[in-house]
Structures are given as C-alpha cells and as structure tokens.
Design a protein around this nucleic acid. Structure first.
Lengths: 340, 340
DNA sequence: GATTTTCTTTTACGCCCGTAAAGATTTGAA
DNA sequence: TTCAAATCTTTACGGGCGTAAAAGAAAATC
C-alpha cells in the first residue's frame, strides 16, 4: 500500500493526524510510546510529509538560509560546509546561496529567500559593496546573523575574526624575525576586513615603533590571485618594494604574489639565499601548497561557523531578537611555514 | 496598502486571480496588454506569490536541484556557478546541494530533494563511491542529467569531458617535446574519470609506440593535494620516478606534486636547469598560480554546464524522457604553461 | 460587420497540512 | 485510590494557490 498523505499515514500508524503532525514538527514533543509507534510505521511505509503543505501554514519554517559572498572562494566553501552540517544536526534545513561577488545577486538572493520564509538567515555579506540598505531592511524582517564581513547595524549579531589580534600577531612575528613588513593590499578592496586589517597593521607598526609602509595597488573585485600576481610582478620588476618583507592583506593575494616572485626568480623564504619574505592572512586551504608554503594567520573557521549557527538557532528557538547587537571576534593562530 | 495574497493582488491590478496565477506560471502565456497591467501593478505593490502554496498543487515545480560531489573543490564551485546562472535565466530556481565527498550525504541529498519535487536534477555524482542503486532509483522518479562523473545507466544523459581526447592531447604534446610521461595517480581514486584517464593514457602511449609507466600511489578520498604532496615527496626522495616527465591524473594532485618538488629543490619546467616536467588535467582555477604555472588540459566548463542545463530544461519543457541515454563529451584544450 | 479564435472572468473545488478548542484518555505522583 | 497534569483524539477551519469548466469578452480573420 502506498501512503499518499499524512491522513493515511496517521491511520496506518494508529495515531491521530494532529499528533503525527506534532511529531514531524518536533519528535520530542510527543510521548515516548507514541513516538515509537510512529517510528515503527515510518519504517514500514517510508512516508514523508509534503514539504510545501508543511511549510505553508507554519508560523516558522524549519529552513535556515545561508548566504555567502562567493562560493568559489574556498574560505566560504569551507565555512558554509561547517555551517550546513551544524544546521542539519539541529534538525533544520540549510538553503545555501552564493552572491557570486555581485551586490545585485546578493540583494536578489535575500529577496528570494524571503519568499521561503526562513526561520533565520546566516549571512556572510559582500561587505563594502553590499546594498547595505537592502540588507538592513531584510534583517528587520528576518532574524539574521552576520559573519565574516560586518555591515553596521545589520542583523542580530556579528561573528568574525579579530583582525587587530591576528594582524598584530603576524606583524609581531615578522618584526621579531626580520625586517618589519610592508602591507600589500588593493586600493579598492571589496571586503571591509581589508580596512580593519590595514588599520590593525598601522596600529601594530606604531606600537612596535616602526614606520608603516602601505603598498596599495590598483585593484577591485574578487580576482585576488590575479591582482596579487599582476601587481606583484609590476612592483618587483620595478624594484618598487619598500622592504624585503611583505604582509599581504589575505592569502589569495599572497598566492598571486608568490607566483609572481617565482616567475621573476626572486627566492622567497627564510634561507640565506632568499631575498624576500611573504606572509598572508586566513590560512586558505591552498596556502599549504604554495611555493614556498605560505606563512599566515589561521582564521578559526570552526569557531566562527559554530558560534554563528548557535546564535541563530538560539534566536529561533527562544523567539527573542536579542537586544543590543553583539559582536563575537575570534583570535587567529599563527601558522608558520616556509615563506616568512 | 499591503498585499497579502494573490487574491488581493489580482484585485489591485484589475485582473482575475486565475489569470494572475497563469502569469506567474509563465508570463508569456497571457496577452501582452494583460501582462503589462500585471507588471505595472507589480511595480506598485511588490507582491510575490507564496512559494509554498504555489508549489503545493503544481504538477511540476519550477525548482531544479543541482547536486555536486564537493563544493569545496573549485571545479565544482565553478561549474555550479555556471549552471545556477543558466537555470535562473530560464526562469527556474536552482537548489544547490553538496555531497561533501560522502556517499551517505549524496543519498541524503537526493532523498531530501525528492520531497521538494524538483522538475529536474543536475547531478555531478561522487562516481565510484556513489550508492549507484540509490542514484538509479532516484533517476527513475525524477528526470536527471549527470555531469562530470558517469554512473552507468543512471539519468537521461551524461555530459562530461572526453578523456580519451584530452589525455591523448597532452600525452602527444609531452612526447613530442621531451621524454614520454609517466602517469601519476591514486590507487583508489574516488572518481571514475580517473579510470578513463588511465586507460586513455595507456592507449595514447601505445599508439605512439612508447612503453607506459603507471605510478599508482596509495591514496583514497578527496584530499588530492595532500596525496600529491605526500606521495610526490616520497617518490622523489627515493628517486623512484621512472621518467623525468609526470602527467598527473588531475590538477589537484599536480598542485601537491609541484609543491613537493619545490620543497625538495627539484626544479620543474622546461629550462635547461630543470630536472622534471609536470602536467595536470582540468585547468583548475588555481593552476595558473602554481610554481611554475601548471601545463594542463582545460575542461570546457562552460560547454558542460551549458549542455547539461539545456538538456534538463528540454526534458522538463517537452515532458519527454528521451529514449536512449545519450552521452555528450567535450574536447579539452591544451593549456601550455611553465611546468611542461 | 460577422465569425472564428484566443484570451479572460467567474465559480468552484481540492491540495496537504498547521492549528485551535474541547473533550477523552493516559500518566504519574500524592 | 484519587486527582491533576500531560497527552491524545475529534472536529473543524483556513491558508494560498493550482486547476478545471463554463460563460463571457476581446482580438484576429475574413
């Protein structure tokens, strides 16, 4: 016999439909003996409630939107993998969407999520280029927790890395072990972390009593490796680098920069035959395999994913939009490899 | 005034509800003047039909599932980006799910997609490790087009790369310009393309009258870079490479291998000071930035995404499950860079 | 202008399930 | 055993929309 709807399934399991409905909403909400009878029937008939009918009249669906700036960036791929897993474990359903680096797509994604009535949303926004009005409007309607990039006043909370701490860490390290670093970055970075990191660099250099060296190269958009390669090539072939130590604003820039150094025959690393030290920030999954392997600061992916997810689940379950927007920042860890 | 449902929106636009419903199902299905009136009202009231109510009674939803083996792999990230875009342009809604390299998650993903009643699914399966019974069962219920990895007898069609052609191309090139290559691969690759490539290598070498050299290193799972690095290090430090030219089964293995060569001080490339040539396969987004940059064969991402998407859209629109499962294979293009 | 064709309106029903309220039953503690 | 609390059943309604059929209106054809 083929079960067609909850009515029939309820009959087959010998439980009333409202109770079965309650079970599917939250298995713990029914008595143990009832739960067992339903689960026994489930084994026999493999029925699943109609997804659409189920969500139509629910005050809150069991869907949680996950919007990331750019899935092609392994950082976001990795963090959304963690988040998805946690959401599933909590009995919710993740809906993963990428903005592909475009503000319009980000706004579209939020708009489109709205029609799915998610119980909550985890948003890793574009940042500087986001349509911040649209984002704030969305956050007013749907409980949202931001991660990675902050947008002022948007969402219930922000979870990210403490750029002051992490940049401080690597600047300390670089200064301690050689020439103080110059800071290599794009002049128009899409991501607000870039600004925080720049300021953190300036502060750290100041604290250590060194004159800062900002190297701001023309560049916008998300093709970081390309920009790092192109501008690195230009700077090095013009001998325009102010120091022999370069701290890149993120690992993807550093990956391009290292590639440029290799092509130009400039040996990077710590050995006596090396002319350059290069460091990055993020511990991008590929940075272990650059040549030489990249010294960097690891962001605590798991802690970020974990905290952001717990935060949104808590808001959903208590129904309380917390008062006072909170910010959770995690420390980075120094990852010493061959490049600096 | 706030529009709460289609009834109210229909009233506000001066059109009957069934016609409005028809419009949302397919804007082209109503008269132009009617369409214009509805769209004028849309500007004023920004109403959107309830996603759940909308899909509940439709024979076919406007959702298309996109399931990929591993979103953390930039190949899948890139191809799913293309697919998503094409689906949106066609007026459908993509639902992106990653299996994260796990057969259980793949089966779960399909199961979970089923309850969403997708009009069709584009599946880039794990391949060898897939639960092929579950996949075939799914394909029986839901029109599915496979891409990247094939599973025999599953789905309406398969779209991928012609490994015979692409491997032939690079083997030809390598033989023409130096010592014939050895083929570097894992002994337990998760992906069936690996087997096809191995056979293509054997055939190409045979055709050119060279003795083949298979280097099968212990390795399973998806940590290709790690395996390439570890086993590359081992082989090179033991001087166990049979030739000075290595063709890796895919770019990610090559990335690890190149990193290992660098660490060991073995110069890779074409110069007279180089002791090794290394090539890959796929044109992975990162392969431009390896040291030296990686010579490889580019898969035609766009053509694969395009064909697979058009295929599923066609099946959906005509309602015909084509008879006779078709296979579409695209040629690779040689990408000559520094490593070989 | 008459006729055919195409599109729209009206009316009505059903999809599958969430939810509410009231009464019946079970459970667990006093 | 008694009684209150927890849980379940029954009954009933409604959500927002797809869809079908019949009748009406508009556009296209001649």
């Amino acid at each position: 016999m083929k079960i067609r709807n909850m009515e029939q399934f309820a009959a087959a399991s010998g439980i009333s439909r409202p109770t079965v409905s309650k079970y599917f909403n939250d298995p713990e909400s029914v008595r143990k003996s009832t739960r067992e009878r339903i689960e026994a029937a489930l084994e026999k008939f493999d029925y699943r409630p109609n997804f659409y009918a189920m969500n139509q009249n629910r005050r809150l669906t069991k869907n949680i939107g996950v919007v990331v700036a750019n899935l092609a960036d392994p950082f976001f791929a990795e963090i959304s993998r963690n988040i998805e897993q946690l959401i599933v474990e909590a009995g919710f359903r993740p809906i993963l969407v990428s903005s592909h680096g475009s503000p319009e797509e980000e706004a579209d994604a939020l708009d489109s999520l709205r029609s799915i009535k998610p119980a909550g949303v985890l948003l890793g926004p574009l940042g500087r280029t986001s349509d911040s009005e649209a984002v704030r409007a969305f956050c007013n309607d749907v409980p949202t927790v931001l991660f990675d990039s902050d947008i002022e006043g948007a969402g219930e909370a922000f979870v990210g890395s403490d750029n002051d701490q992490s940049i401080g860490l690597i600047v300390d390290y670089l200064c301690r072990t050689g020439e103080p670093p110059a800071f290599f970055e794009m002049d128009q970075p899409p991501n607000p972390n870039a600004f925080k990191r720049r300021n953190a660099y300036l502060a750290a250099m100041d604290r250590l009593g060194h004159a800062p060296n900002l190297v701001q190269v023309p560049g916008e958009g998300w093709d970081f490796e390309e920009i790092g390669f192109r501008e690195g090539t230009r700077l090095m072939s013009e001998n325009a680098l102010p120091t022999n130590t370069v701290l890149c604003s993120n690992d993807r820039l550093a990956i391009g920069f290292l590639s440029a150094a290799y092509e130009l025959g400039k040996k990077v690393g710590l050995g006596s035959d090396c002319v350059l030290r290069v460091a990055g920030h993020d511990d991008h999954p590929f940075s272990r395999y650059t040549c030489p392997s990249l010294t960097t600061v690891a962001q605590d992916y798991r802690a970020i994913a974990d905290t952001a997810t717990r935060k949104i689940l808590n808001i959903i379950e208590t129904g309380e939009r917390e008062e006072g927007r909170k910010t959770h920042l995690f420390d980075g860890k120094l990852v010493m490899r061959g490049s600096a």
